[in-house]
Design a protein around this nucleic acid. Structure first.
Lengths: 181, 181
DNA sequence: CGACCAAGTCAACAGGCGTTGGCCTACAAT
DNA sequence: ATTGTAGGCCAACGCCTGTTGACTTGGTCG
């Protein structure tokens, strides 16, 4: 499967270093076949970087458990879907990938937060802060491989991230009397 | 100054897309001069990515103020030193840059945390978690440009990040009865 | 004046890239 | 047996990259 090889290469090397030739070689086909099926490199990337966070419905989750549920979900998601890594690796140097990342945030995470957030006007900011938590941890653990973060077990990470996300969603934002800036 | 142009290009484009020709053009010199002065692209990058966090001495800071002090310091640092952005942009796709980032963490942040951390054995993990906070926020604000995070004022970011860092340094790690894994 | 040496310019090399068009094979229908 | 067609391979194009070596300039010393 071409897409599987593409996801692997994009996720491991980023957009610029992942070459069509290498992807084709991994898939044991000719580079020209990649062009025939996907048109060009950009379109191949777009097909490979189609991310679905698969966020669960949170309506039946008690407010005090939101952080814990999301923490476990994100870590599982991160460890079994290469597309997550693709966006993180490529979104940093490729504007198109960054735009897609903002879209994933706006279309998937933000609306969900909006439905469970006590004060809807704060929802986008709370969702954004939650994103910083998840992305910062993924960056240090899976990409930069900071030793102390890599050394944490799956359970330890979930246990740490849960309360952090909980604070993003329902905690004090720091300047509550003037939240809009 | 060649280094200034190199920092700008590496910070804006990442390692692969920043070309020696473009850097030389920015500096209004010939590409061959870059080679003469720095040897090759890798060495030029190494010279441009020499990051100093300039962390203040924290010994005289009350423990309850550690997060606030570091929060303000990091945000100032991010906003006036292009080298910070270089490492974030390139460390994601370039293993040499990632290694340098781990070195900055191990040599600059971790020792400082070790000196103010209540239980020294937890220091590396606390420093790592603090790194996830700072990097996650910088990633969303300066690189991915998530709108709600960009919309926050400097003061709002500092006010939010302070307590977060404080929790990393002196708060509950989540599984305190078994912190080493 | 002539000789040197560092600083800078220029053109070119070899290699890798995305992308293209032509050829070749294999199979189905007539 | 011949034709048509789709799928796949190969060689090549044009472009851009890092890097190199030869050449020119300008200033300083014997």
């Amino acid at each position: 499967m071409i897409l599987a090889a593409a996801r692997e290469r994009f996720g491991a090397d980023g957009y610029e270093r992942a070459t069509i030739r290498a992807i084709a070689s991994d898939a044991a086909i000719d580079p020209a076949m990649v062009m025939r099926y996907f048109g060009n490199k950009e379109k191949l990337f777009a097909a490979a970087a189609d991310v679905d966070l698969r966020l669960p419905a949170l309506d039946s989750v008690p407010h005090s458990q939101l952080g814990a549920v999301l923490s476990a979900h994100f870590l599982d998601r991160w460890e079994d879907d290469e597309a997550m890594m693709i966006l993180l690796r490529t979104g940093v140097t490729n504007e198109e990938a960054a735009e897609r990342m903002r879209a994933v945030f706006a279309e998937q995470l933000a609306p969900l937060v909006g439905r469970v957030c006590p004060t809807p006007i704060e929802a986008p900011r709370r969702a954004g802060l939650a994103a910083t938590q998840v992305l910062g941890l993924a960056l240090c653990r899976y990409v930069l491989r900071l030793p102390p973060i890599v050394a944490m077990t799956h359970a330890e990470v979930v246990a740490w991230l849960g309360p952090q996300l909980q604070r993003c969603l329902t905690g004090d934002l720091g300047v509550p009397e003037n939240p809009s800036g």
